[in-house]
């Protein structure tokens, strides 16, 4: 009995000693600033900064190899605190948010073929340039939904990706993954957008979509300060829009592509355009 206790006891002591020595010998020194940075970073490990996880970004920040304003999900608050820890001056960037520039859902935009295969937009895009006749519209297979680390994206009943503006942090991962660039970042303060991504002519757009921008320039004529044309696609001049005139342009848009989005990404003023709905039923 006694022998066993002594035996085990001394064994324990030796092991403890070894552990203590190992801890000394192989200790890894971490810059305290890196620990502090880990506290302030968003912690989503989303990778939007271009580093594999928050830890790697913190290390790069301490090493001075990364810019301090890359943590998009953290926003202005995180940026301020990073600047404080690193002791550098930074200029705040206006917060951005992802916008899905397409309304051509299953009922509105004509399909090109019956796609069967991997439920991934990028894979589908490789087969005859995507299953929709529109070359720029949302495919609705949800690559962005899978990629979003914040659960801000979903596929709605129309078969389109929808941004939950309350959850979106503007990290831009969905923008990078979308094979048709139908998702883009826009200033978070803006809520009026032209929800179309198609730069083709009116005749072509009409042949496959009920709700695409025709490039008719009505909005530009109504509110020249607020809208600008890019080929056959009207776009809002972010930061220069005048809401009162824009509302009028919204009314006049023949395909109702100009919408005012609320927090969930639904349009506030008009529900689904009634005229478009009538036309869509065959």
């Amino acid at each position: 009995m006694m022998a066993a206790m002594i035996c085990l006891g001394s064994l324990g002591c030796v092991a403890a000693l070894l552990l203590a020595m190992a801890a000394r010998r192989f200790a890894v020194t971490i810059d305290p600033r890196q620990v502090a940075l880990m506290e302030v970073l968003a912690g989503a490990n989303c990778g939007a900064c271009g580093f594999p996880g928050c830890d790697a970004y913190a290390r790069a920040l301490v090493a001075g190899t990364a810019k301090p304003d890359l943590c998009r999900p953290g926003g202005a608050e995180t940026l301020k605190r990073i600047a404080a820890i690193l002791g550098v001056e930074v200029t705040e960037r206006p917060p951005q948010i992802a916008v899905m520039y397409c309304q051509g859902g299953l009922q509105q935009a004509r399909p090109k073929y019956d796609y069967q295969g991997l439920q991934d937009c990028r894979a589908a895009q490789k087969l005859a340039r995507g299953p929709k006749l529109c070359p720029a519209g949302c495919l609705g297979l949800g690559s962005c939904v899978q990629k979003c680390p914040f659960g801000a994206l979903s596929i709605d009943a129309r078969g389109l990706a929808m941004v939950d503006r309350g959850r979106c942090t503007g990290c831009g991962l969905c923008v990078a993954i979308c094979p048709r660039q139908v998702l883009a970042l826009a200033p978070a303060t803006e809520s009026i957008h032209v929800l179309c991504n198609n730069r083709e002519s009116a005749a072509r757009v009409k042949s496959y979509c009920n709700v695409g921008c025709l490039g008719c320039r009505l909005c530009v004529r109504t509110a020249p300060e607020s809208f600008v044309m890019d080929s056959f696609l009207a776009q809002v001049r972010y930061g220069r829009g005048q809401p009162a005139v824009m509302a009028e342009a919204m009314e006049r848009c023949p395909h109702h592509c100009i919408l005012n989005l609320d927090e969930q990404g639904n349009d506030q003023i008009l529900p689904t355009p009634p005229s478009a709905r009538e036309r869509s039923t065959p």
């Binding site: 295969g117 991997l118 991934d120 990028r122 894979a123 490789k126």
Partner: peptide
């Protein structure tokens, strides 16, 4: 499983 489609995507990427 559409293995070839995934691999083709990987090759392209």
């Amino acid at each position: 499983i559409p293995l070839v489609q995934s691999i083709r995507y990987a090759k392209g990427a």
